[in-house]
Simulated assay, not measured.
Amino acid sequence: MLGHTRHHRGMLVAAVVLTVFAVAALWPGLLAAADPVATDYNAILQPPSAEHLLGTDQLGRDLYSRLIHGTRPSLVIGLGSTLVGLMLGAVIGLLAGVGPRIVETTLMRLTDIGLAFPEILLALLVLAVLGPGTINVLLAIGIGSAPGYARLIRAQARTVYTSLYVRSAVGFGLHPIVVFFRHVLPNAFGPVLVLATISAGTNIIIAAGLSFLGFGAAPPTPEWGLALAEGRNFVQHAWWIALAPGVAITVVVIALTVVGKHLESQLAGRS
């Protein structure tokens, strides 16, 4: 009973955290009125204070405002890349799961090649072709995460497609397309949505890492990974520059993981 209560408390806290960050992404002006790119050379490298809640950076910009306004590009890259990877993986996995043997073998061998590379390395390879930029980072991370989704969706689709009730539906004359959309597709995506929720946090970390390396948003855009990169040269004298975006990334990732684990437990309870 105590563990059950703690689980729901954790889920509630995670939901509140994600709601706050969602508001920051959609309506940053509600939480931070200051211009995130405005410089003030009279307020360079000031520590957190009543005037500047999270301090200022090397150009005198308000770090609280940059944190709030940086939520949108950071979450767009993380969540958008998850959607791209999920859609691409779904196409590959479903074709392999219900298609002929030659299609399954070809797609799964290509998927195995993709899984041989860590996601961030595969994303870097894609960026080497596409070049840097926010949209390219989103696409690169999505392509890098697609093989994992494809493998899981293929296994789920194959299990459902070969199940007795699906074979019975086909035997009773139900059209294969109807069977696919009514039975295979909904039942194959339950565990995948859990993986997508958890992977969204991982993608946010990868996006921040790529921005840290200079592949993402360009200055003076407020973005968490870029903020970490800008603060690395001032860690000893102005530790607050890198602290805020680092904490924000950590909190969002933990909240998404808690939600993903909750969905996983709910799915396991129904099975």
Rank of each mutant, 00 (worst) to 15 (best):
M1K: 09
G3P: 01
T5E: 06
G10L: 14
M11Q: 14
L12V: 11
L12G: 12
L12Y: 09
L12R: 10
V13L: 15
V17L: 11
L18F: 05
T19N: 00
V20G: 04
V23Y: 00
A25S: 13
L26E: 10
L31I: 12
A32P: 07
A33D: 13
D35I: 09
P36N: 07
P36W: 02
V37E: 10
D40M: 03
Y41V: 03
P48Q: 06
E51N: 10
E51V: 13
L54N: 09
L59V: 04
G60K: 10
D62T: 12
L63V: 15
S65R: 14
I68H: 09
H69F: 15
S74Q: 05
I77P: 00
G78H: 06
G80S: 10
S81R: 03
G85R: 08
G85D: 11
A90E: 07
V91M: 07
I92A: 15
I92N: 02
G93S: 11
L95I: 06
A96R: 01
R101E: 12
V103R: 08
L110M: 15
G114I: 11
L115N: 11
I120P: 01
L122N: 05
L125V: 12
L127K: 01
A128D: 01
L130I: 02
L130E: 02
G131F: 05
P132Q: 02
I135K: 12
G142P: 09
A146K: 07
Y149N: 03
Y149R: 00
L152D: 00
Q156D: 00
R158P: 00
T159H: 04
Y161C: 01
T162A: 09
S163Y: 00
S163A: 14
S163F: 01
V166G: 06
V166M: 08
A169H: 06
V179S: 10
F181V: 11
H183G: 03
V184K: 03
A188K: 01
G190L: 12
G190N: 13
L193R: 06
L195S: 14
A196L: 10
A196C: 12
S199A: 15
S199D: 14
S199P: 01
N203W: 02
I204V: 15
I204G: 03
G209W: 03
L210E: 08
L210I: 10
G216K: 03
P222H: 04
P222F: 05
W224F: 05
E230Q: 14
I241T: 10
A242G: 13
A242F: 04
A244Y: 05
P245G: 09
G246L: 10
I249S: 00
I254R: 06
L256Y: 02
V258A: 07
V258S: 03
V259K: 01
Q266R: 15
